[in-house]
């Protein structure tokens, strides 16, 4: 479990995160949703320690990352897998080398065992057959899957995904969402996903935090999103006329 307590963050005097407190659950896909520019990336980066928050605490199963020494933080990071918005694969390496990289760096296993583990991860994301291609030769969806394979290579306890669906078509997005959700449940990982994709919210959201202008505005699961009367949340999730109509229909069915 990751517990965030009273996190605030400013850039150049402009406050981006306002006193956010939230708990992200173990073995669940936790979502952070909100408009573009609402501070999702800053919140996620603060949680993993890429930004130092101005105030507040972040506990990884009781271990406070905000007061850790550099060394402790480095050790904690070996339990973290992260999926960046642009995949961030190393473009000088093949897919296999990318997935093997964290193992090469931190694992004392033999080359054969490391390769076997990497191939297992590549198989898990259905990319067998592409392991000797470079990132530039992969499609957007394949790059995302490759990044997932790299993120899970070290069997992380925590998985962070920053907009895993950005730039993907709806069908590919579903594949990625499903993959993240399955991997989370299979390995009992604490997963946090940043998204503004309504399909993800309804599809895989088990514990959803809605942030609006850098402040926590609502929290619940995907069913509660449908029935919530929070005006800001509804305006965000059901932005189009079509989806507003859809919501009305669903609500009518429930009652």
């Amino acid at each position: 479990m990751i517990a965030v307590e009273n996190i605030s963050k400013s850039f150049d005097g402009r406050q981006v995160l306002h006193d956010i407190s939230v708990e992200f659950l173990n073995g669940r896909t936790n979502l952070i949703i909100g408009q573009s520019g609402s501070g999702k990336t800053v919140l996620l980066n603060s949680i993993v320690g890429l930004h130092q928050p101005d105030s507040g605490h972040i506990y990884y199963d009781g271990r406070d990352i905000t007061v850790m020494s550099k060394k402790e933080r480095t050790m904690l990071r070996r339990e973290i897998g992260m999926l960046f918005q642009g995949s961030a694969l190393f473009d000088s390496m093949t897919l296999l080398e990318n997935v093997m990289f964290p193992l090469d760096m931190f694992s004392d296993k033999s080359y054969k065992e490391r390769k076997a583990r990497a191939m297992l991860c590549i198989d898990r994301v259905n990319l067998l057959g592409s392991e000797y291609k470079h990132p530039a030769e992969l499609s957007g969806g394949m790059q995302k899957r490759a990044a997932i394979a790299r993120a899970i290579a070290m069997e992380p306890r925590y998985l962070f995904c920053d907009e895993p669906n950005s730039g993907l078509d709806p069908k590919t997005s579903l594949v990625i969402d499903k993959l993240i959700s399955e991997i989370t449940h299979e390995n009992n990982i604490t997963t946090i996903v940043n998204t503004h994709d309504m399909n993800s919210v309804i599809g895989i959201g088990e514990n959803i935090l809605f942030i609006n202008n850098g402040a926590a505005a609502w929290q619940g699961n995907s069913k509660e999103v449908l029935t919530s009367n929070n005006k800001m949340l509804n305006d965000f999730v059901f932005a189009s006329e079509f989806s507003k109509q859809l919501r009305q229909d669903i609500l009518a069915n429930i009652h």
């Binding site: 993993v48 890429l50 480095t74 990071r77 070996r78 960046f84 961030a88 990289f101 760096m105 070290m154």
Partner: peptide, 8 residues
């Protein structure tokens, strides 16, 4: 960032 996050 990816390197840093891995603890490299």
């Amino acid at each position: 960032d990816a390197l840093d996050i891995m603890g490299v």
